[in-house]
């Protein structure tokens, strides 16, 4: 039996092992082991990332011939040389265009569709709804060849347009929005309708202002998704002046047009923005994985 009157600890144990267990020696050792394992998990997760940051300071000769984890010197010029020599800033800028347009499309088109499916629910909406759910599990990559041909036939290639619009057709974002909209109390929408608002006005005046949290979440996903995407961007943008960071990184690695050390630094450049984004919006991202992950 546990003592309810026992003074509470600052942090309550929430797992299988409860506070009352921790007195047993066996359990205490167990906890120590658990902490060691956790530290190991954190180490394994972070080590490759830290390593590549340090490896980026190596010169080509050092990179291919010295069997050490850390560089001999923290020579920042290695990074600056790669940055300017490979003109990665152009690709950064292109990626920014790609990301910005994708975020807008992701919010507008998926938001509106979810609004229709969750709130307006016009006759026959279930068909669309099932199709969207189906697409959630049947991703676009499978039909990349016909899609590619369509894009070419419409002469939409060689610019961001198809990439922007593609993020407006994401079943995942629709589901995120939809879950959120479905939690609205019906009375709010009803009230606005009684006030004589059209569906679009209701969306603008009522739904949108309330949806800031979900918009932020979708935007974060869209930023990360657009930044990391490379298959369609590669087919659409490769060889144009609009190559994004990922397209460039892929040509570096597949066509081997750069040396191994430069490739590793390019990897670092490709990783920096998502990592920064993550630390800025850490809470939002991890919280939402939980919500969305289960359904999507």
């Amino acid at each position: 039996m546990w003592d309810l009157n026992k003074p509470r600890k600052a942090i309550l144990r929430t797992g299988v092992i409860r506070d009352f267990d921790t007195h047993a020696i066996g359990v205490k050792t167990g906890l120590v082991i658990i902490y060691i394992v956790c530290a190991l998990i954190a180490f394994v997760s972070l080590f490759p990332i830290l390593w590549v940051f340090f490896a980026g300071f190596k010169s080509l000769q050092e990179f291919v011939s010295s069997p050490t984890l850390l560089p001999q010197a923290l020579d920042l010029s290695q990074y600056t040389n790669t940055w300017s020599q490979l003109k990665i800033y152009n690709n950064y800028l292109n990626s920014v265009y790609h990301v910005a347009g994708s975020v807008v499309c992701a919010l507008v088109f998926n938001g509106l569709l979810a609004y229709g499916l969750a709130i307006l629910k016009p006759k026959g909406y279930k068909i669309v709804s099932s199709l969207v759910m189906f697409s959630l599990l049947m991703p676009a990559t499978i039909s990349i060849v016909p899609l590619f041909i369509n894009i070419q036939n419409l002469h939409m290639g060689r610019f961001f347009t198809p990439l922007w619009l593609a993020s407006g057709a994401s079943a995942f974002y629709v589901v995120l929005f939809r879950q959120f909209f479905e939690s609205f109390p019906g009375s709010i929408i009803e009230a606005s309708r009684i006030d004589g608002c059209t569906s679009l006005q209701t969306f603008r005046r009522i739904v949108l202002p309330l949806s800031k949290p979900i918009c932020v979440v979708v935007a974060i996903y869209a930023v990360n998704g657009a930044w990391s995407d490379f298959l369609l961007p590669y087919l659409v943008l490769d060889g144009t002046v609009w190559e994004t960071v990922m397209v460039r990184l892929y040509s570096f690695s597949s066509q081997q047009t750069v040396n191994a050390d430069d490739l590793m630094r390019a990897v670092v450049f490709a990783m920096i923005p998502p990592i920064l984004l993550f630390f800025l919006f850490q809470k939002k991202l991890t919280e939402n994985v939980v919500v969305s992950g289960i359904k999507g």
């Binding site: 590619f148 894009i151 070419q152 939409m156 290639g157 060689r158 590669y234 490769d238 060889g239 144009t240």
Partner: peptide, 10 residues
Amino acid sequence: TYISRAVGGS
């Protein structure tokens, strides 16, 4: 990538 450019007219 050439196929993509050739059929896309670019």
